[in-house]
Simulated assay, not measured.
Amino acid sequence: MYLTFTQSTLRSFTQNIFKAMGCSQEHAILAADVLLKSDLRGIDSHGVARLSGYVRLWEKQRINATPNIKIVHETATTATVDGDAGLGLVVAPFAMKVAIEKAEKYGSGWVSVKNSNHFGIAGYHALMAVEKDMIGFAMTNASPLVAPTFANERMLGTNPMCYAFPAGKYPPVIVDMATSAAANGKLEIAQRTGKNVPEGWIQNADGEYTTDPHALKTGGALLPLGSDREHGSHKGFGLSATVDILSGVLSGANYGPWVPPFVAFMEPAANAPGEGIGHFVGAMRVDGFRPVKDFKTNLDNWIERFKASETINDSQKVIIPGEPEREAEAERTTNGIPLVLAVVDDLNAVAEKFGIEKLVADA
């Protein structure tokens, strides 16, 4: 069962929860904006459904609601940011602003981040660069839930990466994806709705395929993009490794099996080599390569040609990266955001804890 809410209702509720945690007004507004962007774009696994997880980590003193986010290493075009255990929803936009400022001066800017937490959807941060006629990059490592090709041990996170390109008369092209066969949030959605997941997403504790979305709780693991060696899982493993190295090894954050878990009941691994979760963001000025107008005209042409490509049958169409999310945002902006009842109950339990007015469906 789903209940529907306007974005203003969810935004106000989410801001109030973050402020109850001790976040400043500025940080509460920003953090809520990142989560709402996810829900609007149809990425339900990373929206307000994650809010109770942030609260539980804050209660365990693993999230600092009042961080001193700062640059700790810097050159003209690069920087490393220490997030001071703050919300990744706040730390990553800070880092992207640094990258954009460097790109404005020197053509490109690259920032690694350590000592952060879960940063929501990568697309939010990459799109910040697009607004400045830049190409945006954003990636993050994550809790170890994925077994590398041929392994039966969780070593990597879902480790998403995003590339965003500004177009002219069309919306940006946004490639935003996990490097695992599926994002963990999709398992959580399946768990809440009582559904199985497709074969090829997870392996059980014995390394065998399973469709049980609860398999991670009994020693199973997510699989890399490609699912198995015969279908290219080594490529997904390679992409995930790239994200982990840029986000963790380069910044001084944790990496591989030492990345802290998002769930509060699991303690971070002992003898961790770094600090917190790591991100990597970047911005490149389009006019560092060619006039912006020319690039956008050609990207519009690219979009049109791909949309016009011959399909297998008339009922199908080529989908440009970012198109489903844009369509979801248009629909949900008008008709509201649906939340499964289990998520609403979870959020209202958090509201009751803080003495905040509970969510009531708008429709």
Rank of each mutant, 00 (worst) to 15 (best):
A76L: 13
E325W: 05
K307D: 06
L246P: 02
L341G: 00
W201H: 06
D44C: 04
G355K: 11
Q15T: 06
W258G: 02
T78A: 01
V130Q: 05
D212V: 11
L127A: 00
P224W: 09
N348M: 03
V175H: 04
T210N: 06
E310C: 04
I320N: 06
K317A: 14
L216R: 07
M134C: 13
G278A: 03
H234E: 13
V344F: 05
G157H: 09
V48P: 03
A126L: 03
S12R: 11
I174G: 02
F237Y: 15
G226C: 11
D84T: 12
E74M: 00
G248K: 04
P172T: 02
G220Q: 07
S8C: 01
A342M: 02
Y124Q: 05
C162L: 04
T75D: 09
K307I: 01
L299R: 03
V360M: 10
G232H: 08
L250M: 15
A32L: 08
N152Q: 14
I121H: 05
V48K: 09
E310S: 11
H231S: 15
L359F: 10
I303T: 04
S8F: 01
M284I: 15
N335W: 03
T77C: 15
T4Y: 13
L250C: 15
N271G: 01
I337A: 06
N348E: 02
A253Y: 00
A92M: 12
A283M: 09
H125M: 07
F262Q: 12
I189T: 12
R285K: 15
I43D: 07
V98Y: 00
A328W: 03
M266E: 15
L239Y: 12
E26W: 01
D84A: 14
Q25P: 00
A205L: 06
L299A: 05
H231V: 07
G236Q: 07
L10F: 06
I63A: 11
P213Q: 09
A99E: 02
A95T: 10
G288S: 15
I69C: 02
A283W: 05
W258S: 14
E310M: 06
E188H: 12
A20D: 03
K37L: 08
T193I: 14
V360S: 10
L250F: 14
G282V: 00
N152P: 01
R326D: 08
A147G: 09
H214E: 12
E131R: 12
K296R: 15
T311W: 03
R290D: 02
